[in-house]
Structure formats: structure tokens, C-alpha cells
Design a binder for these strands. Structure first.
Length: 196
DNA sequence: TGTGCGATCCACT
DNA sequence: GTGGATCGCACAC
């Protein structure tokens, strides 16, 4: 029986966790019992004292989940349209997280295509943070605060092996403050990465 | 109580 | 390559 990555994984340095999450398997179980999954191929780290971090200015009802224990999902809504999936890292109260930006679909590709509402190439299903939450049917009300370490959880990160790959470190996307910090990581050459 | 803007995506040029 | 959609939150008044 394979178990999810343990809570301890999320207690290491958040940038290290962001790097090591590349190649791991994000698994989503639907209420129907159907399983959707994808390999994590792109992440970004958001740290305390990081001006781009939602928690930079202190705790609010919106970002409260980031201040909670590590190993749970922080799902939030932005641009009036999109959901973002983050994994909370560092000890309770620290408020650091890893943004999951892209997946390579593995299981449940037909269901993902339905959730995305169109005939799309497989790599188009989850090659962006707003797209992958839609493909996996993640919502703020339903999944914010969900454990990702509990084997019975609807959403969890499973240890996974993929062929050796090169990790690219670069600057983060879509932010104005702290934009110069090289805390975005992706699998070089993977077609599902959101943007070069 | 009002206003500005954001860790984006997609259609259209 | 560019701009519109669209809404919750933070902060100013």
C-alpha cells in the first residue's frame, strides 16, 4: 500500500519542497470514486517575508489556511475567475506555500477533458494553475484546508518516480512585487509546463 | 461604504 | 501580441 508524502515532507525548506514536488503524483478522487491524477511538472515557492506571498501583510480570513499546519491545501479564487492550488509548507503559523502551476495528466484524462469543457489536447488540460484546478474540479468551498497527507483524502500527493530530468530554476510568473526572486521550478523539456 | 487590483485564461488580431 | 472578463479582498475615506 503506497501512502501519501508525509507531513514531514512539507516541513523542509519551502523552496526545497517546491523542487522535490516536481515528478510527484497529485491524485484527486471524485465523489463518484473516479480517480484523476497527474505528475507535478511546475511549482512556485511563496515564503514568509516574501512580498509576493499572500501572507506577507499578515493573516486575513482569505489567507488563514496558510497559517495552518503543513500538508494541507490552500485553495483561493483570483481574477474573478480562477482557482489556484497551493500546498501549505513550514510549521504552523509560518505561512509558506508551494503553488502548483502545471501537471502532466496521467489518469482520468477523459474526465479532465469533460471538466475543462472542450475537446483539448491532453497537454492543454493542466498546463496552467487555473486550468489544473478546473480539470481536477477543485473549489475553494470544497477543498480549501483539505489534508493532502491523509490516505483517505480526496486530494493527496503520492511519491512517484519519473525518468531523470533537469530542474530549471527561474523567476515567478504573474506577480509585480518580488518578481526578481528565482523561486519557480519546472521540469526542463516537459510539454505541459505553462510557459517558457 | 466605496474603490482598485490581482500568484489568469482565452478569443481575437 | 494584446485586451476583456469578473469577483473577493484589503485598504482608504
Amino acid at each position: 500500500m503506497v501512502t501519501p508524502l508525509p507531513t514531514e515532507f512539507y516541513l523542509q525548506d519551502t523552496r526545497e519542497a517546491a523542487k522535490k514536488l516536481l515528478g510527484q503524483l497529485l491524485v484527486r478522487t471524485l465523489p463518484t470514486g473516479e480517480t484523476l491524477s497527474g505528475v507535478i511538472v511546475e511549482t512556485e515557492a511563496y515564503l514568509r517575508d516574501d512580498p509576493a506571498c499572500h501572507a506577507y501583510k499578515g493573516q486575513t480570513p482569505r489567507n488563514a489556511m496558510m497559517f495552518g499546519p503543513p500538508g494541507q491545501a490552500y485553495v483561493y479564487f483570483t481574477y474573478g475567475l480562477h482557482m489556484m492550488l497551493n500546498l501549505v509548507c513550514a510549521p504552523t503559523g509560518t505561512a509558506e506555500a508551494v503553488l502548483i502551476r502545471a501537471l502532466e495528466p496521467v489518469d482520468g484524462i477523459d474526465a479532465m477533458r469533460l471538466n475543462r469543457g472542450g475537446i483539448l489536447e491532453t497537454k492543454q488540460l493542466t498546463n496552467g494553475p487555473g486550468k489544473l484546478t478546473q480539470a481536477l474540479a477543485l473549489t475553494r468551498l470544497g477543498h480549501n484546508g483539505l489534508s493532502i497527507t491523509d490516505p483517505a483524502s480526496e486530494l493527496r500527493v503520492m511519491p512517484h518516480e519519473i525518468p531523470p530530468f533537469e530542474t530549471v530554476e527561474t523567476t515567478r510568473i504573474g506577480i509585480s512585487r518580488g518578481a526578481e526572486l528565482p523561486w519557480r521550478y519546472y521540469v526542463r523539456g516537459n510539454g505541459c509546463v505553462s510557459r517558457k
